[in-house]
Simulated assay, not measured.
Amino acid sequence: MTLADVAAAAGVSTSTVSRYVRGQLSVQAVTASRIDAALNHTGYKAPLIASDTTTVGLIVPELRNPYYSDLADELSTQAAASGLTLIMSVSGSTPVRESLAARHMGAISGLAGIVYLGMNRHNDELAQLVRRRVPIVVVDEDVDTAADTISTVTVDNFGGAYQATNYLIAQGHSRIAHIGGPRGVPTAEARLGGFRAALADHGIDALDDYIIRGAYSDQFGANVFRHLAGTGSMPTAVFAASDVVAFGMIGAAERHGIRIPDDMSIIGCDGVPMGQWLTPQLTTVAQPISEIARTAIRAFSDLREREISRREVLPMQLRVGASVRQLAQEH
């Protein structure tokens, strides 16, 4: 199929389609819908955007969360080793700012492609870059745009959560709470799913009062004790869906008269290095940050040079610290 075939199916000129798929023309929504439908119907695939530059855009939700700052640093290191230079935009985790970040990156002349970390599944501007055949590697959270110009690198969040919860059960805990991430965020939903599955496999009910959802932030973690205190029966252990949430809980525990791990055990998720310096040292299921970065940059090179897209799911690994106590029996 050719651009002329797409143009005929959409009822527009060939030059209109050409400029539209390159992102050089803004058209009315109804016209865009007709062109998109014609592209899908004809199966036309434009070649990937060719660029002689080595500049790659990196979009991250925030830098306050050390998981993102550590990953951004490792991505920069791996990119440099491959002869690439990253320029970064911080999106603030909101749908509007994520779309703006994608738009601004796409407007940079000669940009070789984008490594994208978002918190929202849908991004209209990212979809527009896909139509322009810009190479994109999505890291961490999935997006709802699928194309042969997108590669995805993520981890087994379900398996990591299952592993964390199973470890708590193996230490004798059955009153286990889950301090989860935002609703609708793929990693948060997968980690909740792994938590529930591990409990179910051991015949333990997942109590609604023991499942609390909120931001991946230390402030959220510090505030959950009030809710847990109102359940009538405090859990003996907590699986926090993010290390930074666990940091907040450990920091605030003493103010609530709770000793970690004597009164409550905590296991985190992500493997942020800062957890090694806490007292007690945080037990966690770790994401392989270096391997994620290496895989993402390798996937970008494969997209750019060979037009090969891939989906990589990497395993998480249990790191035992001192924040989980073994119970002789549930009390």
Score class of each variant (00 low, 15 high):
residue 6 V to A: 00
residue 17 V to A: 00
residue 24 Q to E: 15
residue 25 L to W: 06
residue 28 Q to R: 15
residue 32 A to W: 08
residue 35 I to F: 10
residue 37 A to V: 01
residue 42 T to W: 03
residue 43 G to P: 06
residue 45 K to Q: 13
residue 46 A to N: 10
residue 65 N to Y: 00
residue 74 E to N: 10
residue 75 L to S: 12
residue 76 S to N: 15
residue 80 A to S: 13
residue 89 S to I: 11
residue 89 S to H: 09
residue 91 S to I: 07
residue 92 G to R: 02
residue 96 V to K: 13
residue 103 R to N: 09
residue 106 G to Y: 03
residue 109 S to F: 13
residue 113 G to I: 09
residue 119 M to T: 13
residue 130 V to P: 05
residue 131 R to C: 00
residue 132 R to M: 11
residue 137 V to L: 09
residue 145 T to E: 12
residue 147 A to H: 13
residue 150 I to E: 03
residue 152 T to G: 01
residue 152 T to N: 09
residue 152 T to L: 15
residue 154 T to A: 11
residue 158 F to E: 12
residue 162 Y to L: 14
residue 164 A to F: 08
residue 169 I to L: 12
residue 176 I to R: 02
residue 178 H to T: 07
residue 180 G to S: 15
residue 185 V to G: 00
residue 186 P to F: 09
residue 187 T to P: 03
residue 190 A to V: 02
residue 195 F to D: 05
residue 195 F to S: 08
residue 197 A to W: 03
residue 201 D to V: 06
residue 202 H to T: 03
residue 211 I to M: 14
residue 212 I to M: 00
residue 213 R to C: 10
residue 216 Y to R: 01
residue 217 S to H: 08
residue 222 A to H: 09
residue 224 V to W: 06
residue 225 F to W: 15
residue 227 H to S: 12
residue 231 T to I: 14
residue 235 P to Q: 03
residue 236 T to E: 10
residue 238 V to R: 05
residue 243 D to R: 04
residue 245 V to H: 05
residue 247 F to D: 10
residue 251 G to M: 03
residue 255 R to N: 14
residue 255 R to T: 14
residue 257 G to R: 06
residue 264 M to A: 07
residue 269 C to Q: 14
residue 270 D to W: 02
residue 274 M to D: 15
residue 276 Q to K: 14
residue 276 Q to W: 07
residue 277 W to H: 13
residue 278 L to F: 04
residue 279 T to D: 12
residue 281 Q to D: 09
residue 284 T to F: 08
residue 288 P to H: 00
residue 294 R to I: 09
residue 298 R to G: 07
residue 303 L to A: 06
residue 303 L to P: 01
residue 308 I to D: 09
residue 315 P to M: 01
residue 322 A to C: 12
residue 328 A to I: 07
residue 329 Q to R: 14
